[in-house]
Structure formats: structure tokens, C-alpha cells
Design a protein around this nucleic acid. Structure first.
Lengths: 145, 145
DNA sequence: CTAGCTGCAAATTCTTTGCGGCTAA
DNA sequence: TTAGCCGCAAAGAATTTGCAGCTAG
């Protein structure tokens, strides 16, 4: 049993969900991505072959993964479509989107958590989690290489 | 001519758009909100009466306001639907969502801009803008009052 | 065995678009 | 006058759901 299946097994058991091939395949694929992804990307990779998983199952499973905290649902881009990313267990992270190419970069920064806690308490709240996206333009347009 | 119509007039003129009743009504309504809103809320308020504006015009105008920077398009909530808010000219602001009631609170904090700039440059980007949402739980559940 | 899953296709929801008539400049 | 708008209704895109058969536990 590999690492991804281990994550799947642990997660599904803890949540009282049945351990099915479809769910294991989806979780394995998400871990393999290693970056934020759209539901459709998952579908493209899983929509055929012997490990084929249907659209309905992909969406239903994503919802359960988000509810269980294994995956974060990130909202940005031209509305409509959601992005997701593996939460990795909880280390605070956020994203930077390259407004020229659309590329998404993930980063972590300890100041984010501090800032969230400070702002939350100032407004009378306990900090739970955050969604933070920076939009940026490449500092060095690859034109002089 | 009131303040809202002034904003509308300035914005539309600068962008080379015609100054129509529909657009003035929409901008007036957005300023009156004073908080983040959904397209549908705008439609509910504008969908009838003598100032009636059609759904198509609401969406078309929102798009132009976002392109022109008068309004920000914010993505959060249960996917699907976009939230918008009046940019107020550009002061960096962000939102805190009450995970118990769904209420959205807007706030500004100068550290956000500093942090965005620091992170962007560290990743090789110039900071353009951000979308920042904190999810929080009320610190004082109104139970002992 | 049976509660819970799955795939399929149809349904929903939010947003966009084509088009013919209207209007600000 | 005429480029740009508007409302309507139909089209699109992403996600959800009803249903009937399948399967993990």
C-alpha cells in the first residue's frame, strides 16, 4: 500500500465512508497533482481508462473531501469554476496567481496566520481559516535571455 | 445631482460609456448597499418598479464596472455565485466571513499590502491586487446578555 | 444482506449572448 | 443620424440530483 492509499484509507475510515476504488483513485490523483487544480482537470485524468471515475462521483467526492478538510476549495478565476487544493494537514498556505499566464503558485507564510488571528480578534471573532490570493505580474518578463 | 450620480457620471465618462438610466441606477444601488453583494441582490432591488433594469443589463454593467475598477469581484461562498463590492477607489480591503451566520464583514489593514508586496517580490512578481477572506467564528456567542 | 456507492442523463443555477428595437450624443 | 444600449428569451458552463443497479462491510 502506497502513501496516497494510506491517506485515502485513513481519511475515509475516520469519516465513516466506504473505501471504494473511485475514492482511492481520486485521492491518489489529487496528491499526485501537487498543485491547485480544477474539477475538470481531475475529470480529464480520470474520465477514461481502467480507473475511470464518473463526473458525478468526482464532484460528490470532492465535496466530501472539502467537508472533511482534506482539500480546500479556493474561489478565484473567472467565477464559475472552483479550484481545489490538497490541504496537507493544515499548514497555512495561500496562492499567487500570475495575471499574465494564469499560473497559480502556492506558498506558505507564517505572518498570514498571525495577521488573521489579529484581525479576527479585533473584529470579535475566533480565527478559523482563510482564503488568500495575491494577483501578480511577473517581475522579469522573459524577454532578455 | 447627488453623490452617487456623480460617481456614475465620472466613471462612465472616463470609460467612454454612454450615461444611461440603467447604469446610473445600478451604480446608485451599489453605493447604497455599502457592503458586498451578489448579482441577484441587485436584481431583486432593481428588477421591478419604474427604475427596472433587466438581468442582462445588470450582468453586462457589473462586468464593465469590474473592468473599470469601480467594483471588485470577490469569489467565495458555495461556489457558483460571485460577490461584488464597491472598490471605493482602491484602499486595500478584505473580508471576514462569519461561518455561523454567513455574514460578511469588510475591513482594511495596512499590513495586508505590505505582506502582499513582500511575498510577491519573493516569488518574482510585482504585486497587483489581492483577494483575502478570513473565515471566523464569533468570539462571544450572544448567549449571556 | 443492505446501507451506501456509482454511472448516466436530466435538472439546476448562475451568467452570457443573439437579436430587433430604442436612445444618448 | 448612428454607435452603442436595452430587454427578452434562448444558450452555455459548471455543478447537482434522481434513479436503478452494484458492492463494501
Amino acid at each position: 500500500m502506497n502513501a496516497a492509499d494510506n491517506v485515502a484509507f485513513e481519511f475515509l475510515r475516520k469519516r465513516g465512508l466506504k473505501i471504494t476504488d473511485g475514492r482511492k483513485t481520486i485521492i491518489r490523483e489529487i496528491l499526485a497533482f501537487g498543485r491547485p487544480f480544477e474539477a475538470e482537470e481531475l475529470l480529464l485524468n480520470l474520465g477514461r481508462g481502467p480507473e475511470r471515475v464518473s463526473k458525478a462521483t468526482v464532484y460528490r467526492t470532492l465535496k466530501q473531501l472539502v467537508e472533511g478538510g482534506l482539500v480546500n476549495q479556493v474561489f478565484f478565476g473567472p467565477a464559475k469554476q472552483s479550484y481545489y487544493d490538497f490541504s496537507g494537514g493544515g499548514a497555512a498556505h495561500a496562492h499567487l496567481a500570475d495575471i499574465q499566464t494564469g499560473k497559480i503558485i502556492e506558498f506558505t507564510n507564517p505572518e498570514i496566520t498571525r495577521l488573521c488571528e489579529k484581525i479576527s480578534s479585533r473584529l470579535g471573532y475566533h480565527y478559523v481559516s482563510h482564503r488568500f490570493l495575491i494577483l501578480g505580474r511577473p517581475a522579469t518578463p522573459e524577454t532578455h535571455r
